[in-house]
Simulated assay, not measured.
Amino acid sequence: MEGNYWNHNTAFHNELIADAKLRGGRILDIGCGDGLLVQRLAPFASQVMGIDPDQTALELAQRRLAAISNVTLMNDDFLALPVPIQEERYATIVCVATLHHMDLRSALLRMSQFLSPGGRLLIIGLAEDKSILDLIISGGLLLPIRIMDRLHGGMGNPNVRIAAPKESIREIRQVTNEILPGAKVRRRFYYRYLLSWDNPLV
């Protein structure tokens, strides 16, 4: 594919694609940036919607995805969108390194409203290190992550908005348990976590 690159976010793309492929149907990528994940998801979906508030990133995505017919892009704030009717909700919602740009509670609630019954929400997120345990875990990952970065030939970083996370993983788990009962929040490599939640069928 044209415009491929590797970094601590794209490292999770294959995992997200394999999961979304199980359901197919409509997929929503919140904070799609330059559209690389949308491009990779498109062969396994009936439709992929990418949304991002950054006009510059969306222009890159439009060029990348111009020849793909089942993709729609929207330059907008996800939290400002109206909740879709049942038939227009999504079988899979992915959100990579974007949740910390939004209000945590509002974003999780709105994502749950966009997800079809039986659908799955998959978030690769960043958390702030606030506790001693957080700092110990992050410090222990420093050398292994540097080694992996070298093995991948270094990181490719497209021109996207950057923001520091505000909540710790403990705080993210607390809010997630309130908004999305049964969700799982697990620490992952590359200073990331995976939040997964299945919307009940009834």
Rank of each mutant, 00 (worst) to 15 (best):
R23W: 05
D34H: 11
G25Y: 13
L16K: 10
I17K: 07
N75D: 02
G50K: 02
P84A: 04
L16H: 09
A91Q: 15
A11C: 03
G24K: 10
S69A: 13
E88I: 00
D34Q: 08
A42I: 02
V94P: 13
T92D: 12
Q47R: 15
Q55P: 00
V94C: 10
V83Q: 13
E15H: 12
R64N: 09
V71Y: 13
I51C: 06
A61T: 03
M49F: 02
A67H: 08
D54Q: 12
D29R: 03
E88P: 13
V94H: 03
Q47Y: 06
N14P: 04
A42Y: 06
E15N: 07
F44I: 02
D54R: 08
D76L: 00
G25S: 09
L73A: 09
L16A: 13
R64C: 12
L81N: 11
L58A: 06
Q39T: 07
A20D: 13
I30S: 02
L16W: 05
E87W: 02
C32K: 08
L81P: 14
S69R: 11
K21T: 07
D76W: 00
D76Q: 11
D54A: 04
H13C: 05
S46H: 12
F78D: 02
V38K: 12
D29H: 10
A66T: 11
I27V: 13
E15W: 11
E88S: 15
L73V: 14
P53H: 01
S46K: 14
L16N: 14
I93K: 07
L81W: 02
I68A: 03
D76K: 06
A61F: 05
R64E: 08
A61P: 10
I93C: 11
L58F: 04
Q39D: 14
T56R: 10
D52N: 09
L41W: 00
L58Y: 08
A45T: 11
C32V: 08
V83G: 09
A61K: 05
I30Y: 03
P84L: 03
A11S: 14
L65W: 15
E15P: 00
V38Y: 08
G24Q: 09
A66I: 11
V71F: 11
L60S: 12
T72W: 11
K21M: 01
G35E: 09
G50A: 04
L58K: 03
K21C: 00
Y90I: 01
A57R: 04
M49S: 14
R26L: 12
L73Y: 11
E59R: 10
N70F: 07
D54V: 01
L60D: 05
P43V: 01
R23V: 07
H13R: 07
Y90E: 12
P82H: 04
H13I: 05
L37K: 08
L41A: 12
L81C: 08
R63L: 12
G31A: 00
A66V: 15
R26W: 13
Q55V: 05
L73S: 06
I17Q: 07
I51P: 08
R63A: 10
V71I: 14
D77A: 00
Q62S: 15
F78K: 04
Q55E: 15
L37S: 00
Q62L: 06
D52Y: 06
Q62G: 11
L16T: 13
V94E: 11
L36F: 07
D29Q: 11
P43L: 02
S46E: 15
